[in-house]
């Protein structure tokens, strides 16, 4: 049971890990993207749309296309969302919080609208779309996983998107600490005027980091629907995982490698109620609250310790006007 608990916790955590890695890249460039929940939602529905029409158009699905088409449509969907956010906040200097919240509202509405439309197209009785074939392709695990018993279940039973999430998180950590571009991006998030004076193209970095961050976050939505939910889309099924991903950013003190552990912890806390017997309804809700409580505790602790390295990027949420130097 412990093994299956951890396995489920990891699967719960992967969407959060994608979301928080994407948000960390964005925040390191000084942009607080509260549109992440919406972007993850759009990433999911875009993948669903791609998969739906591919499944409808062919008799037997080609596993490679069945993965590539939803993947590319998901990337495209979340990229466009990121681009809209960039145009509004980087070029037009609109307020980042307001823009982000609008993007979330928009993304969720967009997802539910197209989700509802697709459900109508299928004429099914249940309010959901089942993309079983596509999901099976996405869930292909390593072939030797079931031969290794508990170790196989714990480490090798996941799909490629789950491993990608961890690899991306590690790569992003290396990018921040070991590359020139990473140094430049961090400088922009801390002090854009200094970065500008040092000859760094601030707006280009902001665009690229925010759009890449959105794409990564969108993959979290795709993973959720294709893998975690077994290819079954139902409106609002994604829940508040997007917000949890943003909370995870704070929990991980802006370090993607910490998010890997954090996401599994959050995932575990989210599903813990299933593994504790005889809980009343109220107790279930209380346990579901724990990730947020933990986040608040982390916030309190990092504020009290006043360690500069653990603070959010100094110019997070602030627009940068060169003329105001």
């Amino acid at each position: 049971m412990i093994v299956s608990f951890i396995q489920r916790a990891v699967m719960q955590g992967i969407p959060l890990l994608y979301g928080s890695t994407g948000e960390i890249i964005t925040e390191k460039g000084g942009h607080l993207n509260l549109g992440i929940p919406g972007i993850m939602y759009v990433g999911a529905i875009s993948g669903v749309i791609g998969a739906f029409f591919y499944e409808q158009s062919v008799e037997t699905v080609n596993p490679i296309l069945a993965v590539m088409i939803p993947l590319l449509s998901s990337v495209l969907g979340s990229f466009i969302m990121g681009l809209i956010y960039c145009v509004l906040t980087v070029t037009l200097h609109s307020n980042q919080n307001v823009t982000g919240l609008a993007m979330t509202t928009f993304g969720v509405g967009f997802g539910n609208f197209f989700g509802g439309s697709l459900i109508k197209l299928t004429n099914s009785d249940t309010p959901s779309i089942a993309l079983v074939e596509t999901s099976r392709c996405f869930k292909t695990a390593l072939p030797f996983a079931d031969k290794l018993g508990a170790i196989g279940e714990l480490f090798f039973s996941y799909s490629f998107l789950a491993y990608s999430a961890i690899i991306i998180a590690i790569l992003v950590t290396l990018f921040f600490n070991k590359t020139r571009a990473g140094l430049h991006l961090r400088a922009i998030g801390e002090n854009p005027a200094t970065a500008d004076a040092a000859g760094i193209n601030v707006n280009r970095y902001k665009y690229v980091s925010t759009c890449i961050g959105s794409i990564i976050a969108g993959l979290g939505g795709l993973y959720y629907v294709m893998d975690y939910a077994d290819g079954i889309w139902s409106n609002n099924g994604f829940g508040d995982r997007g917000w949890l991903a943003i909370a995870l950013v704070i929990f991980a003190v802006w370090r993607p490698n910490f998010s890997i552990i954090g996401s599994i912890l959050f995932g575990g806390l989210l599903i813990a109620y299933n593994y504790i017997p005889n809980l009343s309804f109220e107790q279930v809700e209380l346990i579901k609250m724990t990730p947020y409580v933990v986040t608040i505790l982390v916030l309190i602790i990092i504020s009290m310790r006043q360690k500069k390295e653990n603070q959010p990027p100094a110019s997070l949420g602030l627009s940068y006007f060169r003329e105001e130097r």
Binding site: L183, E190, N191, A193, T194, A195, A198, Q311, A314
Partner: peptide, 10 residues
């Protein structure tokens, strides 16, 4: 014009 959380080298 310096970034506070960076080292001197950075």
């Amino acid at each position: 014009k310096l970034v506070d959380v960076f080292s001197a080298t950075e």
